[in-house]
Design a protein around this nucleic acid. Structure first.
Length: 493
RNA sequence: GAAUCGGUAGCUCAGCCGGUAGAGCAACGCCCUUUUAAGGCGUGGGUCGUGGGUUCGAAUCCCACCCGGUUCACCA
């Protein structure tokens, strides 16, 4: 307000001056780049005597009388450029005076070493490629130590482009995440899976226990929900005799935000006919190994202070046995609701809200077992009440042929031998409806079309779901889901 | 939803036992033809998250609210 001229106004004036001398940065459509920053710095010696053209954002600028230095960043890395008035001429020198940190610039010249030994471009020609109208929070650093930058978390998430420009480690993590998703696709494509795209707008949001978002479709005057999982549609594709299918897609759950939760997140689900639970374990093992190798070039990654070698098979444990080992509660105690409640009380957990045996078992699992599942582990055999879409275990019909995979104490995947018996599936849905009637608004809804598809014949099938964001967290060693989400959910300012 | 910490210049922060604001970087001007956290001299820039209250006087104390971080709860 009281400021004579804002930075934006000053920069607009510079833009106009550039236009007056016939150098309009916004008229440029392209710039031929001979080498990227990595190539220039890594192959510096062999690039001597060659004309180099390079382009990037000005991230530092030092004008000294009749010469100037700037660092240009192409995102991957930055290269210093040297401008000397006598060599570039008056017009180009005038242009240099009108440059700012944040502008994009193209340069042509040859490589040389400065007095202090920095690999640099001796510029002969330059070409402004865009004008930055704002003051960018670009920090300075020396010897790896950083003095300034953008560190306010709120600003970083609200203005992610600034975060990407200013924070190299942030950029790397988000780029790694993109590469992870790409590698996941390649894994499934290579082994003959077909990628599908199923509806996001659904009338019955099933496949998981979660509150959905709702929307309204005007043309049909119809209330619709945003999907909470991919499962039921993908299994209908299996029923249509496409035997290997996967989808990577955004799902939406109307729940809170935390370190490990965002209302929209990316789910990977894959289904394969004629295979079972054990085959799904192999798939998960192979997938993590493949992705780790293709993104990081190694089977061994560091996450949360531990080292994980994905060339080794994951540990396999039985849910009830592991629970007994960690809590002392015997499997027999968990065969009836009444005895389970007694056991739960004995180990010091509140029992008031519990009226579901499966729910109790999962709660005990969460408290006693999950924190210990540091190395990659499959926990096998989940209760039938909380697994309405999984085949029963023939040896113990109160449990299912289902497993969850854990790394670093965090749930990574959920898989089962898919229930393909339509009679049983209908019963399970009816049980879920009873739960819903009792007030559980996350109980699974009835989906008659899904039942119909199954009645037409569904082959035995193995299926698995993986939260890709959580997978990216593990592989990048991040403690926060938001660090691997480009634009996490934020309340309006 | 609960506890707790925070919101001061474009950025990173200081000031907070009440006396209406400071630093570094960024910006502007001048000098400087191999600098690199370039340097030297000078200049400008803030409704101190929002709204109330206490007070002669509030960035500072009190209350409410907004936004964010962390931990917990919820999320099978």
């Amino acid at each position: 307000m009281s400021e004579e001229k804002s930075i934006r106004e000053i920069r607009l004036e510079k833009l106009n001056k550039l236009r007056e001398i016939g150098v309009d940065p916004f008229l440029q459509e392209k710039y031929d780049i001979s080498h990227g920053s990595g190539h220039i710095l890594n192959h510096f010696d062999s690039l001597q005597d060659i004309e180099i053209s390079f382009a990037g954002r000005i991230v530092s600028l030092r004008i000294m009388g009749k010469a100037a230095f700037a660092h240009l960043s192409d995102g991957e890395g930055k290269v210093q450029c040297y401008f000397k008035k006598d060599d570039i001429g008056q017009l180009a020198w005038d242009v240099v005076q009108l440059l700012d940190i944040g502008d994009h610039l193209g340069v042509k010249g040859h490589l040389f070493l400065t007095k202090t030994g920095e690999k640099s471009i001796y510029v002969k020609e330059l070409s402004p490629l865009s004008k930055c109208l704002n003051n960018l929070p670009l920090g300075k650093e020396k010897d790896g130590e950083k003095w300034y930058g953008l560190s306010d978390t709120e600003q970083r998430y609200r203005h992610r482009h600034l975060d990407l420009i200013c924070n190299k480690d942030v950029r790397k993590m988000l780029v790694d995440r993109m590469k992870i998703v790409s590698a996941v696709r390649r894994y499934f494509d290579d082994i003959g899976y077909l990628e599908s795209e199923t509806p996001v707008l659904q009338q019955i949001a099933g496949g998981a226990a979660a509150r959905p978002f709702t929307a309204h479709y005007n043309a049909y005057d119809l209330d619709v929900k945003l999907r909470i999982s991919l499962e039921l549609y993908l299994k209908r594709i299996i029923c249509g005799d496409i035997p290997k299918v996967y989808e990577i897609g955004r799902v939406f759950r109307n729940e809170g935000v935390s370190n490990r939760h965002n209302p929209e997140f990316t789910m990977l689900e894959f289904y394969e006919a004629y295979v079972n639970l054990e085959d799904m374990m192999t798939r998960v093992e192979e997938l993590f190994k493949f992705v780790s190798m293709h993104v990081f070039g190694t089977n061994v990654i560091q996450t949360q202070g531990i080292e994980i070698d994905f060339s080794k098979p994951w540990k396999r444990v039985d849910l009830l046995k592991e629970l007994e080992e960690r809590s002392g509660i015997k499997p027999e105690e968990l065969s009836e609701l009444s005895s389970a409640l007694v056991a739960m009380k004995r180990v010091g957990l509140p029992t008031e809200k519990e009226d579901n045996l499966g729910g109790i078992i999962e709660k005990l699992l969460e408290k006693f077992v999950e924190p210990h599942l540091i190395e990659p582990t499959f926990v096998i055999g989940y209760p039938v009440e909380t697994s309405p879409l999984a085949k029963r275990d023939p040896n113990n019909p109160k449990f299912t042929r289902r497993f969850e995979g854990y790394i670093g104490g965090r749930e990574i995947c959920n898989a089962f031998s898919e229930l393909n018996d339509p009679i049983d599936q209908l019963e399970r849905f009816n049980q879920q409806l009873q739960e819903r009637a009792k007030g559980d608004d996350e109980a699974h809804p009835m989906d008659e079309e899904f039942i119909y598809a199954m009645e037409c014949g569904m082959p035995p099938t193995g299926g698995c779901g993986i939260g890709l964001d959580r997978m990216a967290m593990v592989l990048t060693g991040s403690n926060h889901l938001r660090e691997v989400l480009l634009f996490p959910m934020m309340k309006p300012e």
